[in-house]
Design a protein around this nucleic acid. Sequence first.
DNA 1: CTAGCATTGGACCGAATGGTCCACTGCGCC
DNA 2: GGCGCAGTGGACCATTCGGTCCAATGCTAG
Lengths: 206, 206
Amino acid sequence: MRDDPDPAPKTQRGRASRDRLVEVAARAVVARGIHQLRLDEVLSAAGSSKSQMYHYFQDRDGLVEAAVTYRCAEVLDRLAAVFESVGSLGELASVLTAFADEYAEHLAGCPIGTLASELTSGPEPARRVVVDAFASWESFLARALTRIRDAGELRSDADPSTLATGLLAALEGGMFLSQVRRDATPLRVALTAGLGYVHGFRQELD
Amino acid sequence: MRDDPDPAPKTQRGRASRDRLVEVAARAVVARGIHQLRLDEVLSAAGSSKSQMYHYFQDRDGLVEAAVTYRCAEVLDRLAAVFESVGSLGELASVLTAFADEYAEHLAGCPIGTLASELTSGPEPARRVVVDAFASWESFLARALTRIRDAGELRSDADPSTLATGLLAALEGGMFLSQVRRDATPLRVALTAGLGYVHGFRQELD
DNA sequence: CTAGCATTGGACCGAATGGTCCACTGCGCC
DNA sequence: GGCGCAGTGGACCATTCGGTCCAATGCTAG
């Protein structure tokens, strides 16, 4: 049981310092990626110093983990809000289309996926954080699909979890290919395919 | 026009040395990833030395590019052979299922996708190599789909290129999620979804 | 006021690693 | 048989960067 020996701040001042450090590190991770995160850089940007960092974190990996956690929470908040509003197939389609439109403006890769691929051979604790983040995202989709099914738009034999997995795979694959190709088309096509997959389980009216 | 100033070997001996270097580097890239490739390590594994490397390559990036090119060619050879044999929807499904079965044994990420994501912010020449590799892969799929369409299994309004993009996105997303989750399920689900997408364009018999 | 702990600054260290350099070797050619 | 270039060995250099350390500085309770 390797418990987290990272000591929590014990004063307001300490809390503020630590928070600022994590936030700056998270921005750096987003901007340049995990393995390009430089301690000196983060510390100077945060107006902090080595001793502060090693006071609150075991080592670099500890800071990275905190930054990844922070960033994932940020992204998940947003995703939760977006998908919680979905209660019909039409809403699902429009939300996903809006998602693609927004993505088309930067084509920077999935905010969670990028972290995940940088952590595949990385420190296990941080890796687990992104694995959980994906699970959360998938659950948002699954819950939306459950609502859609319960509203009678999907057949009762449609499994929301499986549909969510398929939809998420389409999104990830689409975002990834769009990033590589620097062109939003793959994401849009993948989205169409993914929605088509879900529509295959639509409840036929008769 | 930054031409490639990397000098070609001028003797058999030189050619052999350079080839060996590239091959060893390619293996190292596959095993540990691009940014974990260590010159000293590759050189000793290849029984080579710094002077040889810098004799044939401008710098580390030059070797990486050669290794990536080598590796992509290797993978594409295999993919070409596999998909060239596809001439019907049934064959497409069985080839993709076999693909998933094989992937399930390592879950190590798409051999090209992994390189691509490591190169998104990397040196442009190497990046272009993987972009082209993806384009080739997609064209293998598109050609198979064209044959399937021409054989009358897909409607004439089905666009093989678009279908190929959708299918590739499903594959990439599926492989990626399976790698992250360390579980083959997402790839299998994504494959089902992707094939369903293609089947949506099936020519109806009547 | 002062002991004591949290917090902080920043000099310093050492390993890792890409890149440079020069001397040496092999070999084909005249 | 020695000139000259391709090829080679490997010591050496410079830098980057994570991590260590200790002295200095708030702060707060008694």
